[in-house]
């Protein structure tokens, strides 16, 4: 028997799945717009960001209604994690919108050849986002845990790109406007991977009621002190 409360939880879950799908699509389109200098595609990303913003507000409203019914145990975890996951998805939408904006700006600059390849970073950030959403859909804490260490690789790749771009700007100052745009896009990809990691941590809490946030950092701080 499905309780009215179950139906409302199901609807909350559906909204999150819609947000996840829109966020993935926004990142994909933004990167495509960036690579192909496609201003029309970039505009579409901005529109989908507005939808994500509205959905985030809707998820919060639905969650507040559900919280007023005093859910407990897995229901309580679902409602609170829904609010956190939707916030991360909305921010992923913001990062995609930023990439699209940089794509539009870059379209007005003369093309330059840069010895920097964003593709591996972009592929990894997208792959992490997909993996985090799959873990949420399947309620798979193992898959979520497996994703988390990948964030360090993204940080390393981002740092390497930033160093190359700084060197490039020093060597060829006339390319600074283009380099700054690429630098911003690299930062957006690094943030998308961070949000995917946050979602993975939320999935672990949702499934296991274990808070794994900052555990590695806390252990490192203890070891260091």
């Amino acid at each position: 028997m499905e309780l009215p409360f179950d139906r409302e939880l199901h609807e909350l879950n559906e909204r999150l799945l819609t947000m996840g799908s829109l966020a993935e699509q926004a990142v994909h389109r933004a990167l495509q717009a960036f690579q192909t200098r496609d201003a029309t595609l970039a505009a579409q990303v901005r529109d989908s960001d507005n939808v994500l913003d509205r959905l985030e507000v809707e998820v919060d409203e639905r969650a507040m209604v559900l919280l007023s019914k005093a859910p407990l145990a897995r229901d309580l975890r679902m409602v609170t994690m829904a609010m956190k996951i939707s916030q991360n998805l909305e921010r992923i939408g913001d990062e995609a919108a930023k990439i699209a904006k940089r794509a539009r700006a870059l379209a007005h600059e003369p093309p330059v050849r840069l010895d920097v390849d964003l593709t591996p970073l972009a592929l990894e950030a997208r792959s992490m986002l997909k993996a985090s959403l799959d873990a949420f859909v399947q309620r798979n804490p193992e898959a979520a845990r497996a994703l988390i260490p990948r964030d360090q690789g993204v940080d390393v790749a981002h740092k390497s790109i930033r160093e190359k771009l700084v060197a490039h700007m020093q060597a060829r100052p006339e390319t600074i406007p283009q380099c700054l745009e690429v630098l911003t896009v690299a930062k957006c990809l690094e943030r998308i991977a961070d949000h995917a990691t946050n979602i993975a941590e939320d999935v672990v809490y949702l499934c296991e009621a274990t808070d794994i946030r900052h555990v590695g950092k806390a252990a490192a701080d203890t070891t260091g002190s």
Binding site: L3, P71, L72, A73, L76
Partner: peptide, 17 residues
């Protein structure tokens, strides 16, 4: 008990199932 019960019967009871 109210955020992460270990037993399924407890979980089902506290969530009203």
């Amino acid at each position: 008990i109210f955020t992460s019960p270990k037993n399924k019967q407890t979980e089902d009871y506290v969530t009203g199932r």
